[in-house]
């Protein structure tokens, strides 16, 4: 494992910690898209199907369990917790799941490495992860002011993608027979989605203003 991959995993973990911090300490999920969180839960559920059958490393198994556990608990908090769910901005979080799920599934049926249930679902999870942030970005645009924790949550998620991209470039040059066009394709789309957000994130940070995305 290289340093870029590790940093990517850790920023991914940081994004989840920031979100849980907001939910646990402030008891608020204001500005967080439940749609995006549900899509991430689906991403991890379909990607880590082999968690108990294929052993890679203790690190991998533990991280997979953390991602699965936290993503489903975040969804539970936003839907069921007696105070947290009251802060959910339901009226602005209107993006439909199936607009993203259906095309990703159809694409995974056509573009995959092998036509097996396991492989198609794994490919589906990569395509879906690439676009799962879209409902969150739409909600950010509709929010008048984005609070710091929400802004930092999306920032860490974007940083994770950036580091994974550098990791793939690094692995491409350092490992033999490293052919992974599905990961590349999905990864580039996913990282590109954050470019706009990063522009406004750094702009607000530089000017010491509250983050606001233009509608």
């Amino acid at each position: 494992m290289n340093i870029f991959r590790l940093t990517g995993d850790l920023t991914h973990l940081m994004s989840i910690i920031v979100l849980l911090l907001k939910i646990h300490t402030i008891k608020s999920c204001a500005g967080i898209s439940l749609k995006t969180q549900e899509l991430y839960a689906l991403v991890f559920a379909t990607r880590y199907l082999d968690i108990f059958t294929t052993y890679i490393s203790l690190y991998n198994t533990v991280m997979k369990l953390i991602f699965l556990g936290t993503s489903f608990s975040i969804v539970w908090y936003m839907r069921r917790h007696k105070t947290v769910r009251l802060s959910y901005d339901k009226n602005n979080d209107t993006f439909r799941h199936y607009f993203l799920v259906l095309p990703c599934f159809l694409l995974a049926l056509v573009l995959n490495n092998r036509f097996t249930v396991r492989e198609v679902l794994w490919t589906f999870s990569l395509y879906l992860e690439a676009v799962a942030i879209i409902p969150q970005l739409v909600l950010l645009q509709r929010s008048k002011n984005v609070d710091n924790l929400t802004g930092n949550y999306v920032f860490f998620l974007g940083a994770y993608r950036g580091f994974y991209l550098i990791n793939w470039i690094y692995r491409y040059f350092t490992e033999n027979h490293y052919r992974r066009w599905i990961t590349w394709m999905a990864g580039i789309v996913q990282t590109a989605l954050y470019v706009d957000f990063f522009y406004y994130y750094f702009k607000s940070w530089k000017n010491n203003e509250k983050l606001k995305l233009p509608a």
Partner: peptide, 10 residues
């Protein structure tokens, strides 16, 4: 790997 996408990443 076997020439496909590696599964060692999260």
């Amino acid at each position: 790997g076997e020439g496909g996408d590696a599964k060692d990443e999260l």
